[in-house]
Structure formats: C-alpha cells, structure tokens
Design a binder for these strands. Structure first.
Lengths: 200, 200
DNA sequence: ATATACATACCGACCGTTCGGTCTGTTTGT
DNA sequence: ACAAACAGACCGAACGGTCGGTATGTATAT
C-alpha cells in the first residue's frame, strides 16, 4: 500500500481510538498527517470511507483472533498464550501508531460503537466474531476436561463464558479508569485463581 | 423541578443513550422536545451544561447502587437481588424515557465515554464507584464463606471480580449484538453455574 | 376592581464559525 | 510529456449559540 495512504490510515486510527468519529475533524486529520486536504481526498473519497477502511483494515483484523495458534497441550497454556498474544498484538499496534498516541487514552470501544453506526453489517460481523471466539474457548475447555486437567459441573460453554466475559469486563474497567497497563497482570491473576478452582 | 426542563433532560438523555454527544444536534433536541431554541437556552446555558446535568442527575445516580439493600441472608440471594434490582431500575428508566427510545439501541457506554471527556472528574468518580462496588461484592462473598454457604481457595476479591467483570462483559456484548433483553436470563444462568461451583 | 410593574416561559430569525468536501493549480517522478 | 501526488483557496451547509420580542401570570399600588 502507498506510504502516504497508510500514514493517513494510521494517524486517523490513533485519533479514532481517542475520540468519536464526529469529534475527529478533517482539519485535525490533515494537520496531524502533515499533508493537505488535496492529498487526503486523493486517497479517500470521504471521511466515512476512511473510517470504514480503518475498521476493515485494522479493527476487524485484530478482532478476528486466530485461536488455532494457541497451545492445545493444556487449557492453562491456552489462556496464557491468549493473553500473551493479545498483549503483543497491542504492543505491535502501539509501535505502528508510534508516539502518536498515549497508551492511557486508547479506547477501542468508542471505535466499535462508531462502527456500529458507520460500518454496514458491523453488528452481524461482530456477532460472528463473538460466536467463534466463544466456540474456540469452549473447545479449549473441552480438551482440558477430556485430558483430565480440569473438572467441573459447569458446562464447557459456561466456563468459556467466564473467561471471555471477565476479559471484556476487566478491559472495560481498566480503560475507563485509565490503567490499561495493569490488564495483563490482573487478568492472569484472576484467571489463574479460577483455573485452580476447576483444576482436578 | 420545572416540567419543561425535566422534559428536555429526559428527551436529551434518550438521545445521548443512542448516539454520541457530537452526533446529537441542538436542532434534534429542539425538535424532539417540541420546544424552541429560546426555551432550551432559557433552562441551559449550553449543550455541554445540559450533558453534565444529565450525567449528574441520571447516570451517576444510577451507577451508585446502594448495595446495603440487597439480602445479607445468603450470597445467592445477594446476587439475585442485584440482578432484580438492576433489571427493575432499567425498566423504570425505560418508562421515564417513555416511548422515546427503542430498548435495543440503548447504549450507556457511549454516554460514559462522552462523560469521560465532558464531565470534569468523571474518571475519579467512576473509579470510586467501581471500588465500592467491588468492596460490596467482596463483603457478600465473605459473608457467604463465613456462613458456610460457599467455599473456595479463590480470595473473596477474586470471586467478587468474577461476578462484577462477567456482568460488565456480558452487558457489553449483548449491547453490541443488540440483544439486551437476554441479559437477565444469561447472567443468572452463568452466575448460578459458578455459584454451584463454589457452593459447599 | 383595575392599572402598573415586573418575572418567567417561550419563540424563531439570525449570527459567526466550523464542518466536510471541491476545485484549480503546482510539484514531482518516470 | 504525462500522470500521479500533493497544496490550499474556496464553497455551501450545518453547527451551537444569541437576541429582540411576545404571551402569560402574578404581585403591588391606588
């Protein structure tokens, strides 16, 4: 992809991660990219199109985690792999965004909510992502039970839900409180404690 | 409070629950209230002031749940009471909003995120709310353990975290998927399954 | 009883600014 | 020479907010 276009995409992404679609102005995009209106509209037909391309190019790609890459050896390895992957993906994104944005006011939820209004079919797509995410966790739980690693009267899906929802919930709170940095440590501690609860 | 002012507040709340601060225009507020620009600025000095009053009058009041009203008899009663209370508070709000807004595109998260930018000291306030929320759950867990109702190697705080975070996480997903109606049932099922896991 | 004075509630034309977007022209790479 | 890459003056629409004015009610003085 053209370097200028990618630059616009990344700078804009960092802006949309900080405030809502409407709050980000063309003026700001033009200034922060160091380019001009002419350059912008050479690559994009509108601000909305830019946003849609950002959702497609970055957001949805990041959301669609490839769960097959996580360990199948044990359930604990699986969720440790998951955390490590998410953290490293986040770090990689931060690098790409460069020093453009401060870690503490990154809020991918506002991006998602804007996408619900601006990206056609976003709701359906996110529904699928959620469903396959839960299915992958369920599978990992199932393997863990089968191998005798964990044991519980909770259904596989319920255990999967506990992991997935605590992940979302904790992430949401840490973002709102501006202490995203503690995600890895807090999530791992909580998951480990629950894991010990269902470990045989 | 003056009826017109309250009417403006409620209509605007329903709008801010559907889209971001910037997306809601004065024109829309004026039209939906059936009043005029003049009337609006008679009661509020600006759109921002209106928003701040909405956060103070409705949002923060709803967030600050009085946990002392929930059963202390057993931990299960406690979280059942919690769910029932939240659901009824939600229903009450829907009634106040009248037929203004559709249940499925109510999104209080965007309201919260806007408040982070527009309501001075919101982050700190929400931090306190979160902290006292967790503390209340921790207390309920502690009682449950003391009475011999539940037993676990997880700390009280960790168990509290499981409940609080799953609540947030599930709520977030259901809102994104437009199926908030299933909250009560799904949350209760999941919590019950976890409860049975730690029940003696 | 009624005229005067004042306050509150409300209206909508209007204002300056900013918005996303366009258009014409210039630079640059091949 | 020619197209792609960019610059920035410019545009109409929409924005939040203002302002002069009206209608209604109510307290007060005569």
């Amino acid at each position: 992809m053209n370097a200028s276009k990618e630059h616009i995409l990344l700078v804009s992404l960092s802006l949309f991660l900080q405030k809502s679609f409407k709050e980000v102005t063309m003026k700001e995009i033009v200034e922060k990219t160091g380019l001009s209106k002419g350059a912008f509209y050479h690559y994009f037909s509108s601000k909305e199109e830019l946003f849609i391309e950002i959702i497609r190019t970055y957001f949805l790609k990041i959301m669609k985690v490839d769960y097959s890459r996580f360990s199948k050896k044990s359930f604990r390895d699986f969720y440790c792999d998951y955390i490590n992957y998410i953290i490293s993906a986040f770090e990689k994104l931060k690098t790409e965004l460069g020093d453009i944005s401060d870690e503490d006011d990154i809020n991918y939820f506002v991006l998602a909510f804007d996408a619900m209004r601006l990206f056609p079919g976003f709701k359906e797509e996110i529904k699928e992502v959620h469903a396959s995410e839960l299915a992958s966790w369920e599978q990992a739980v199932s393997s863990g039970k089968a191998s005798g690693e964990i044991r519980s009267d909770m259904t596989d899906r319920q255990i999967a839900g506990m992991f997935v929802y605590t992940n979302d919930g904790l992430g949401l709170r840490l973002i709102m409180e501006g202490r995203v940095k503690q995600m890895e440590q807090e999530m791992l501690t909580l998951w480990d404690s629950f894991y010990n609860q269902i470990k045989v």
